[in-house]
Design a protein around this nucleic acid. Structure first.
Lengths: 157, 157
DNA sequence: TCGATCGGAGATCATTATAGTCTCCGATCT
DNA sequence: AGATCGGAGACTATAATGATCTCCGATCGA
């Protein structure tokens, strides 16, 4: 239950990779292209391309065309939250259909619905969780290009 | 994103209803049958039947056959958590496929996967949330058997 | 300037999950 | 005995997902 989609999964991996390259020791500032990520994580190339395009449209990464093109984080990793990433791919967080229901398109249960309010509370709590965790927080455990520069000082979680 | 299924939705409504009947003023201890719940909430009867059967199999409610049969909570409402309800219907909580992966059936990304650990943390936090909230907690706001009489029509939200 | 390399965008397809339906069975109460 | 309940299985339709294919425009470098 409450599974996120493969696309969202891929998005998280890709962003983590981009961040680790961009702020890593080896070639800081280097753009990362789709193919590189796809091969690193065994993700179908064209599906990943879609995901990255969506992330770019949502302003999380910026794209560069042409040869030697690719993607860069649009802002620092500690300014990109998990909620932003997931919502960019899968749409707004909502446990039920009625979460973002507009006036007029009521659900059949709405009239006697007894669980809407408590569920909205749960939903809000989950949102807090996802919005308080950033891409940078995700980079603590498993360094893959190795991040050990001065930028990892004040983390303290 | 992170939407729960209609079945899970129905399960929550049904349990809330059963609890409110069972511990309400009117006819405490009364069993509640499928048809009553289906009509109260506009839920397809046979789909709800499946849901209730599943809940019974999971030990959350107990069933009584025959005429005047129906369902009762298997234990007190404050001993039934949202996590138990949802997991009973939708299976174990898991943000990704690899959440409960057994040794041997690794995902293609596993080798270089950089997000597994942080995602498991998030998942665990969500589980805490869902497992700390009980059916009883869900019954604060909207009394239901209720108050059609002199009650306020001031909708407020 | 040409062409290889990149991302952007759209349609398309297969597979799976979901929501809902139908039929038959067994238990139980009157 | 028979009406009323839950139990269980197969079944269908529709939507979401995962993945693929094709074509386009931008850009860099030879």
């Amino acid at each position: 239950m409450l599974k996120i989609s493969k696309k969202a999964d891929y998005a998280l991996m890709a962003l983590q990779h981009i961040a680790s390259v961009q702020f890593g020791d080896v070639t800081p500032g280097r753009v990362v292209n789709t193919k590189e990520i796809a091969e690193e994580f065994n993700i179908p190339l064209e599906l990943l391309a879609k995901v990255l395009q969506t992330l770019a449209k949502n302003g999380l990464i910026e794209s560069h065309n042409g040869p030697k093109g690719g993607y860069l984080l649009a802002r620092r990793a500690n300014k990109i939250t998990i909620a932003q990433i997931l919502e960019g791919i899968e749409g707004p967080l909502g446990l039920t259909d009625c979460s973002h229901e507009k006036e007029g398109e009521l659900c059949l249960q709405r009239e006697h619905c007894n669980i809407r309010t408590p569920l909205l509370k749960v939903q809000d709590s989950i949102y807090q969780l996802l919005n308080n965790m950033t891409l940078q927080d995700m980079m603590g455990g498993t360094p893959l290009i190795t991040i050990q520069s001065a930028s990892t000082q004040g983390v303290a979680q």
